[in-house]
Design a protein around this nucleic acid. Sequence first.
DNA 1: CTGAAAGCGCTTACAG
DNA 2: CTGAAAGCGCTTACAG
Lengths: 346, 346
Amino acid sequence: MNILRGVFEVTARKNLTIADIAQHAGVSIKTVSRVFNNSPNVRQQKRDLVLGVARDLGYRPNISARQLASKRSFVISHFHDNPNTDYLSEIYDGMRRACSEQGYYAVAEKLEAKKGSYRAALLEYLLRYEVDGVILSPPVSDDEAVIREIEKRDIPYALISPGKKKKKAINVFIDEKNAGRSITEFLIARGHEKLAFISGLDSHAASREREAGFWEAIDAFSIPKKNVVRLSGNFSMRSGFAAFDKLMKKAPNVTGIFAANDEMAVGTIVAALRAGKKVPEELSVVGFDDSPFARSMWPTITSLAQPVDNMAHVSTQKLIDWIHAESLEESRFEFATQIIVRDSCP
Amino acid sequence: MNILRGVFEVTARKNLTIADIAQHAGVSIKTVSRVFNNSPNVRQQKRDLVLGVARDLGYRPNISARQLASKRSFVISHFHDNPNTDYLSEIYDGMRRACSEQGYYAVAEKLEAKKGSYRAALLEYLLRYEVDGVILSPPVSDDEAVIREIEKRDIPYALISPGKKKKKAINVFIDEKNAGRSITEFLIARGHEKLAFISGLDSHAASREREAGFWEAIDAFSIPKKNVVRLSGNFSMRSGFAAFDKLMKKAPNVTGIFAANDEMAVGTIVAALRAGKKVPEELSVVGFDDSPFARSMWPTITSLAQPVDNMAHVSTQKLIDWIHAESLEESRFEFATQIIVRDSCP
DNA sequence: CTGAAAGCGCTTACAG
DNA sequence: CTGAAAGCGCTTACAG
């Protein structure tokens, strides 16, 4: 039996309070509290002293007590309405990391739209629950009525991939147009001259931007418009199947397809295989999102990846900074994307 | 710093306290507290009175205060290690519903196995965080070392679809063998006489049971063993592709396939389409789980559905009952399954 | 079965 | 910049 282990357990079990830290560090309780709340008005030297003592003793603030005394919730809620659970769980992971670093709770809530707006669902939530900060992801991040309600209440908030960036918000995003352009250029660079674009929902700003990038690339490479087809999808796998069938009627000689997300790319590829087309030999397909689909399909799918986890992490961190500072500093964070080359367009 | 990672019920907005309710109801504070903690020793009449007043005034207990005073966490943690985010999010939804009804926090934590066990990851978690109850899902629910540690600490826990049911636990499950048998019989009833089974990971008890059900059906219908093929997969889409290719070499005349989950069914179908086989005309495929895949593939996939959301809801409810009662009553809950008939085997 | 009092571990005015 | 005191809304012994 290891002696140290016993000692450690006792130490860990002991209910250390802010008072213990204060005593050991030789400062007041208030000072310790200030340190743990990142308040100004503590000399750096004292701050380091307190933090050092806390670390040595293994102290962690009691969240319930903080909530009770401060009447703050230490909750950051992510409001979403997206069937893509992979996307949501990446956001959640990013939030959770940032929250757990700072003593906050990460919460996820699916909102249901009524009459095209999430406002009612949001209000119902805010009536019942207290939140210190809010994160919105598409399509909720484009709901003006929701944003108005949040701003009205002065709740710090962050928008992930918003259609319109907001001045009084934290905005995290990729350059969707540029990303659409670059993956289209990738397709063109692979020798494709007859191309198709499969759109997502036109109500999603991201889809429109990706399409704009597609057309930019077409222009930049002077590809004749008659060699290009636009098919409308809705982000679902099924709409990818349908798009392929339409394509075969309208323009069977197309060799390169850019689908605005991976699910549609999967649908397109399945339909193509079913029709006897070889992928990528006869038809190359690229997607967007680098979802698990893209990795697990066969052929695996070349896709444009955005750092969702990191975007969520940064937005949460900045949100917490905002909550503490009670004012917003920098508000726009653009993230780099990457083309993940796989078998569907090698 | 933060313990809680998940969705939970935050304190109510209105500042009603237990004292307000006590005053309005004309009882003591203590009595109100008892009512909200489902303690015995309160007459039913008083209980109803208090509950009525609380409802009328819109009172909800302040969780932070409860935590602080009781030194309980009001946290229920779900430990998992499953790449299927759809499955996890269904569990989470069920937990969340039950938790929010009862003033608990629902938390989800992915555990990483070291040397084949989740024990180390669990211990690390328990050292840092307080939990009042635990839910384990496969494959964590089959980790004996994990279960031992939880029992050693007398933490109430529930097992979702465990390989071995535990006496001192809440067990929620479907009859995997029977489910495997019934969907195989469905396949046979559709006229298929040459069949294949694609297994999941053999380390998952569920996969073994589903297979046992498959063979039961084969026996029951006296299908000659030479007309039956077993292919081993690992639950991934890719292993479904591979299984189909193997199948074409070993037994190209098979007409009905039972894949132990939907992802492998998708893989099989994609490979079949690619090989020019028509689904379901030349080859029928059934899956298991009724995942979003099954609904969105084309052809859509006939699949066996289990009520995951409800299983999680019930296990959470029963867990909370156990926590309150400080003793375990009924411990086994079997759920009915359903075959969802779709295009891949109509 | 029920009440009055102490206390959980923090933060927040209020002083200095 | 820092300290002493009150209080957040509950639960928990302790009485009765």
